[in-house]
Design a protein around this nucleic acid. Structure first.
Lengths: 122, 122
DNA sequence: CAGGATCCATTATGATACTG
DNA sequence: CAGTATCATAATGGATCCTG
């Protein structure tokens, strides 16, 4: 891939660089932290209950899962739906807006798989 | 895009889900924290000195920058090069392996830009 | 099941100042 | 310039118990 630094003036280059950094930082602002991305990836596989999500993400405690889910809900990535059955069934699901994150999920997943292979080979 | 949950059995689905979560988690393990990705994005624009990097990432302190750079170096993403000029010139640059992260950078940057536009429109 | 409350330990991050 | 040292706070984690 062509390096940006080879085709742009130094000044333009820095401006571009900051723009990128700010975009990435804004993305990380809402997706940052240890658990948000893993939680979203789990929910990508369909609506799931609290305990289901907890089981898929080994290591997370209910306290943290609860907190992260609330933040994701506030940021419009997740919906908490209560099914009025008996007993009540509570499911978390991705919002329409969250589907815009698929590119990020895919990139992280693909790289993670490559990286796992690399680490094993060392 | 087709939903994974619509074409796979529930069991296979869960296995796949965990695989994805683990891949993402392993990626986040080396890229996690508040500053690693921003630092790598800056260095994508060419080798740069400590202070240069610091200026591009507003808010980072030298302590954190130093710590993060060391970790990135240990993980094989960054090289610290000392030019034997007078005075000495120290530059940080991405390694070959770090270029495998371009997909992640691009995904985060693109989404971040979209997200900025969305936030502004609210 | 779906969490909330509490208490404590460990990290992570931050502000400021300082050095070779 | 390229960091280090010191001090402080915030975020996160772990254990345990509790409730509608």
């Amino acid at each position: 891939m062509e390096k940006l630094s080879e085709r742009l003036s130094p000044e333009h280059n820095k401006t571009e660089c900051r723009r990128s950094v700010n975009a990435v930082r804004d993305a990380l602002y809402v997706l940052g932290g240890k658990w948000k991305l893993p939680i979203l990836v789990v929910l990508e596989y369909g609506p799931q209950r609290f305990t289901e999500v907890q089981r898929q993400i080994e290591g997370i405690t209910p306290k943290l899962l609860s907190k992260e889910l609330k933040e994701l809900e506030m940021n419009g990535f997740v919906t908490r739906r209560v099914q009025p059955t008996t007993p009540v069934l509570i499911e978390y699901e991705l919002t329409e807006y969250a589907t815009s994150l698929q590119g990020i999920f895919a990139a992280l997943r693909d790289w993670g798989i490559q990286h796992q292979a690399r680490v094993r080979s060392l």
